[in-house]
Design a protein around this nucleic acid. Structure first.
Lengths: 142, 142
DNA sequence: GAAAACTCTACTAAATAAGTAGGGTATTAA
DNA sequence: TTAATACCCTACTTATTTAGTAGAGTTTTC
């Protein structure tokens, strides 16, 4: 199940992706437009900024803006930051590998076998999607 | 992240899939072999039985056994029982559809767009895997 | 009837999710 | 320099869920 954090993070990224220029957008604007608690969104945006997707400006005229082009922001990276490991079990994780404490042998483990495929299929989707790809063309024209 | 419940459920199904005959296997045997809390496994097996994957026998010589052939047990069905909806958001769920309360329009929603693909890719994996497929050939020969 | 082994219901403790609160800091404009 | 603006940061709260555990009941076999 997708966390609210991830969902809101994606929506905020999309909102910023729709902007015509790089002018900072205030947290409050995004929060209102996307029906998100402002304070919650604040902490989500902060972690996105710390991860290198966004930049921010304090003070008058401040807010958040994309640090990279939408077509350079891969969902693989975004999901790792917002949702954690893409793999459903640590023993098939590429970035956060850990062996199972309770499996005698990974090679013969059925769960491992299935989860490996699930991981690869999810990775495939994320690799093939940048922020640009998930933006709706209709909204882009506005 | 895969829940312990699902992981244990899959392991138990695999254990039963490796059995040569349909003789009931006691909960305690599976629990010991797979390093699972017996009482926890008990409730997991119960829900698998209630969902039609297993059958059970009480009393002497009792236990659990597969109700269908391993190649007739699809991971799609198993995952729905153990993990819940395959879709990561209710608005892209085939079995548990619900619209989002906070999205103005599903058609233009970026999250929806991405999650649709993720759902399909996961579904593809599960559709292509029966219990038989995730069993390890080596163990089958024992 | 007793033993075996599942069935069922309820409870507990820990972890996590989804926020909210409150104060601090940096930037800009006057 | 000061005040306003708007992010930055840390901590806290509440609710929910997970991962069990407890205990009694029921069914089957011998």
């Amino acid at each position: 199940m997708l966390s609210k954090k991830t969902k809101y993070g994606l929506k905020a990224l999309a909102y910023l992706g729709y902007q015509k220029d790089r002018k900072p957008v205030q947290i409050s604007e995004i929060a209102e437009h996307e029906n998100i608690s402002q304070k919650f969104l604040e902490s989500i945006l902060l972690s996105l900024r710390k991860s290198g997707f966004l930049s921010s400006k304090k003070g008058k005229g401040g807010g958040y803006y994309l640090l990279k082009e939408p077509n350079e922001i891969y969902m693989t990276d975004v999901m790792r930051v917002l949702e954690g490991p893409i793999a459903m079990v640590p023993c098939v994780s590429l970035n956060f590998y850990e062996s199972c404490e309770d499996c005698p042998d990974e090679k013969s483990c059925s769960v491992h076998k299935l989860m490996l495929q699930v991981r690869d299929s999810a990775l495939e989707v994320y690799r093939n999607n940048t922020l640009q790809d998930i933006l709706c063309d209709k909204e882009l024209k506005k």
